[in-house]
Design a protein around this nucleic acid. Structure first.
Lengths: 230, 230
DNA sequence: GTCCTAAATGCCACTCAGTGGCACAAGCCT
DNA sequence: AGGCTTGTGCCACTGAGTGGCATTTAGGAC
């Protein structure tokens, strides 16, 4: 089977149909689950609405939870791929990863805010559905493990060195903090708001190790809130 | 119903029987799942072996995964409770949390290594069973959210301040890194080895933000390995 | 010790996510 | 157009998980 992508700039019909089915399942799931709850909608109902068989559903998604977390998984996949092509200079690895995640996140913007809208719905469902949250965390963890392996390989790091994984886990924690701040914003926050919130959280990272009950850092802990005025 | 604990230093029979049932389910599950895989043992089989009904199983555990992650959940519960009773001085919050987790972890040592043995089995199952790993991560995340709320309340922190959660997530990431190092040790590592590994990871934390591809930190990144010689 | 009540357990029927097998349909290539 | 590969739908099934309810067990009052 040859696929003449470069000549026609298009995926084969098979691939296009598959992507359309996936997208239809994601969008319909997010809408129905948001309206009636994750457990309030069976997969039979979802598949009937989209007019595919349940067997097809499971050919596209590993489980019910994954249809909800697909938008965020796409971003983590993007980060994993981006890190594969990174050039590491002398800068701290955490700094490089930070900029990479910001770039990856920025690139998820499809221009019409569709991705951001999906992520919002997905996030809200995750907050009220433990199994969805669990699935997302595990997917993220697995991606981090893959990225860690890349870092070790590219940087020639010792297998016992905990620093790469700590850096990655802090990167992920920052993203999750930004996501929480973003979904807590009033109204319908935009993609750019999420990027801004992530920047603000990154700015607060060094102080995560040093802030105290009463310290001289009081002025700076408004960083996350100030970013919302941009 | 009055329970005369202080007078006799004992839990009521009902509570004791319940704890015994729980422990039997955990130990049997860990043994059977380790031998035949998580998916290779049904709950019907597990309950028949322990001689309780499946209904009772679900009165004790929220799901099949939780019977595996129960030992670690006990530790996170301990940390959550310990943080409720913390005195915060002027030290950095991360430092206080660090010492608290070390104390909590140390206290999980029951003297005969039983808890550590359960955690090892649990950890190994989690590594080869995504749904177990997912459940653990979500439980941990939920506990972190509870601890974060305590920190905010006790320290009078702003709801938008990302630092407490970042500190907590870094604490958790450190524990997971230590757990991975510990289970990777040859032989049957002891409870004290886990404490040592956690100390070593904590020592590496500041550098997680600063290490680079080629930097002047090369000497210190053996901290995790040196701890294994203690 | 007896009796009553609260709490725990077991049994049962059931739902629904998830799986595997296989026939049929659709797309691709020559 | 024909043949082959890939994708889909149908179906039967398993096992985690749930709710209802009868029975058993433990606890407390007298």
């Amino acid at each position: 089977m040859t696929t003449d992508i470069s000549a026609r700039g298009k995926l084969p019909l098979r691939e296009r149909k598959k992507l359309r089915t996936r997208a239809a399942l994601v969008d319909t799931a997010l809408a129905l689950f948001t309206e009636r709850g994750f457990d309030g909608v069976t997969l039979d109902e979802l598949c009937e609405t989209v007019e595919v068989s349940k067997r097809t559903f499971f050919r596209n998604f590993a489980g019910k939870e994954q249809v909800v977390s697909a938008p965020l998984e796409a971003m983590w996949n993007g980060l994993r791929d981006d890190v594969e092509h990174l050039e590491f200079g002398h800068a701290p690895v955490f700094e490089v990863l930070r900029e990479t995640l910001l770039a990856t996140l920025t690139r998820m913007d499809d221009g019409d805010g569709a991705w951001a809208a999906r992520v919002r719905l997905s996030r809200e469902l995750a907050e009220r559905t433990p199994s969805v949250a669990a699935h997302e965390l595990q997917y993220c963890d697995r991606t981090s493990a893959a990225v860690e392996a890349t870092l070790r390989r590219e940087l020639g790091l010792d297998p016992g060195d905990p620093r790469p994984r700590l850096a990655l886990d802090l990167l992920v924690a920052s993203f999750h903090a930004a996501l929480r701040a973003w979904t807590a914003r009033p109204g319908t926050p935009a993609h750019t708001d999420l990027v801004a919130d992530l920047r603000a959280v990154f700015a607060a990272v060094p102080e995560a190790l040093t802030f105290g009950a009463h310290g001289p850092s009081g002025r700076q802990h408004h960083a996350a809130r100030d970013a919302q005025d941009e």
